[in-house]
Amino acid sequence: MTARGAAAAVLVAFYGACLVFGPAGALPGHAALQPPSIAHPLGTDDLGRDMLAAILQAGRGSLLVAAVATVLALLLGLAAGLAAGIGPPLLDQALMRLAEIVSSLPALLAAVLVAALFGGSGWHLALVLGFTRWPMVARILRAETQALLAREFLRAAWALGATPWQVARRHLLPCLAAPLLAGAGIVFGGAVLAEAALAFVGLGDPEAGSWGRMIAQGFAMLGLGWWLWLWPVATLVVVSGLVAVAAGDGSAA
């Protein structure tokens, strides 16, 4: 629990740093390709920008896209999961079959196609990820809801004449916070990686910075300086690792 809290705190602090120190500013061309020093702790890139500032600026866009995608997936997943858990069996079946169809779609392929067809805006990506990742949340919440419905306090609530809406809002939602958070972490981590992958392929937003694109460009310029590639890679890996820890490591459970 403490590890999860610490990881979440570090992530929030990192995003704060992205917002505060993000703007990379002008392009001082005379300082291009400098190795890490006191003035530029992570070195400068081929245009003379400070690598630390570039990484933080890229983080703003990447993390915002992931956050929007996560909120969308959570809202859809919560609605579908609760409806499937409380509702009649027919609705349950229909929603779960729909979830199965959606989760069988290759989400990254969908994101790539939307980016190629409509342009690589972060909003497009957030929409695609939100609409393809909700089934996982819905499945977790449905299972949790069904387990909760068998408990006595909920049977008491039904017996006292509570409506499904009241049951969902007053009794189920507070108990669903923990699984909802775990689902949020998994969706968020996947979205950060998907955004980077799309930018790596060259289909990201050309106007916003992205760790994925820095990784692709840095690898091509590896002969000029290792810091151009290593820092974006390290940032992406550490951030996605922290998200996994904060989510309670859904893959290991």
Partner: peptide, 8 residues
Amino acid sequence: FAALHAVP
């Protein structure tokens, strides 16, 4: 394994 799983 968890750390390697986080590497794209």
